[in-house]
Design a protein around this nucleic acid. Sequence first.
DNA 1: CGGGCCGTTGACCACATTCAACGCGTGTGG
DNA 2: CCACACGCGTTGAATGTGGTCAACGGCCCG
Lengths: 265, 265
Amino acid sequence: MMLHAATPSNALAAGTAPLRPTFLARRSAADPAAATQALIADTLQRLRESGLPLHRRLVHAGDTVYRCGEAFKALHVLHSGFFKMVTITADGREQVVGLHFKGDWLGFDGIASGAYTCDAVALDVGEVWSVYYEALLTLSANKPGVTGMLHAAMSRQMARERESILSLCTLSADARVADFLRQWVEALDRRGLRTDRITLCLTRAEIGNFLGMTLESVSRALSRLVREGVINFAEKGRRHVRIADSQALGAYIARSLTPEPAALQ
Amino acid sequence: MMLHAATPSNALAAGTAPLRPTFLARRSAADPAAATQALIADTLQRLRESGLPLHRRLVHAGDTVYRCGEAFKALHVLHSGFFKMVTITADGREQVVGLHFKGDWLGFDGIASGAYTCDAVALDVGEVWSVYYEALLTLSANKPGVTGMLHAAMSRQMARERESILSLCTLSADARVADFLRQWVEALDRRGLRTDRITLCLTRAEIGNFLGMTLESVSRALSRLVREGVINFAEKGRRHVRIADSQALGAYIARSLTPEPAALQ
DNA sequence: CGGGCCGTTGACCACATTCAACGCGTGTGG
DNA sequence: CCACACGCGTTGAATGTGGTCAACGGCCCG
């Protein structure tokens, strides 16, 4: 498919997994799902006990947590729900640049410039906890763990954005859709939600926009995944996807990377 | 082409969304180049005066600042040079996920997991200042400005990664190359470096990898840009690009977004 | 000189977009 | 109540962008 290589001296680094006693590094624990759940619980717990004024807000599909251009004052922790981040360029291009779930922080994009640089839109009912950034900063001066928590959240988000770039650059359209499902399932899994039946709260157009393809291609890719037996649709509604074996998604992606049908090697 | 506004009512959020007044003004300062230069100078100044043990290191093309899998202990500020971030997936895909310049911070990807998640490779001679993350944290407890500086740097990096996603998802191959040049020029401009003659310190293969296309397509796109008069190559070597008018790059991108050929303008 | 690596260009073809038609569920107004 | 419009999803056929394969030229270095 795409090229790899070209840069010679890049072998995988032989670094051995370190192990940091900090509460940040719990992701590398044996069970990433359990680790993430602990992380989220810990985050919410800290916020609750911090004494900071928390603004809790219920949202419905289509509500915005913040909009592009608004003055940045607060960060937002997702207590439940699904959210998309949308940017609109000067020349009219619209782009979904990220998806977020329970436990994620929203609003980092506003720190550097003092104003949010995208819209944060709820895709379903959910609950958002908002905290003033300044308040969080002053708190973190006393409690060093808070800073670490924030940094780790940002770091994780950067890693996810890189995953997106990786997927966009190296995978075919079909594989991109499969990878999208894989990541969605993984996100749910890490949060202790059921992963055998998932509900996509995005339209085909939104998925396509996020994956850099047309809605028709998304539809075709999903149909192909059904035909291959990797997924199937629940009786009611074509947004409910049943994924018997989440490993199959990864296998499908890997399969589409090799020109060989199934020889060996 | 990729889709653009093909679907009119596309994913734009429900809710009113008339006009955002100030999303052009996000770089608040009148002169973004001067602002960035001040920011970089300020960052380096702070580090020098902080009393923290700084490890200064000279690098050459191909040297790694850190490698994927290494234990995360330090962040790195680029004092000069050009750097690429490369990830390698389990299934062998290799991907350039970011490019960095003077003033940028490297290593944020290691915070969450305790180990770096990509290779940071120098593309040219340069100088890197490394500082222990723990030391930075303890310092930031006393000096609140340090935390803000770090957060802003992370925020900026996230914004840039989103720019990449935007470019990958919404632009044709030719436009992507033009946008790549535009971003490179802009990065140089913000740092006070000359922008009329630039030197790409990446091979066509690396550019293509970063932009999600083949090296042949990069080569063709560049040739087309020359033919259109947007850029031209300096006599010596096809890595030296002359860009008489950096606006022309943006115009070329905009042109490629509209079906209209070239009525006037 | 020969053999890398890098860059360019051409010919061919496949994958994904485009354009189009259709089915389905839902909300709305006659 | 039904007719109708509308948003969403699916599928087909045609087109074209960009990938693949190949050949070639320039450059550097052993």
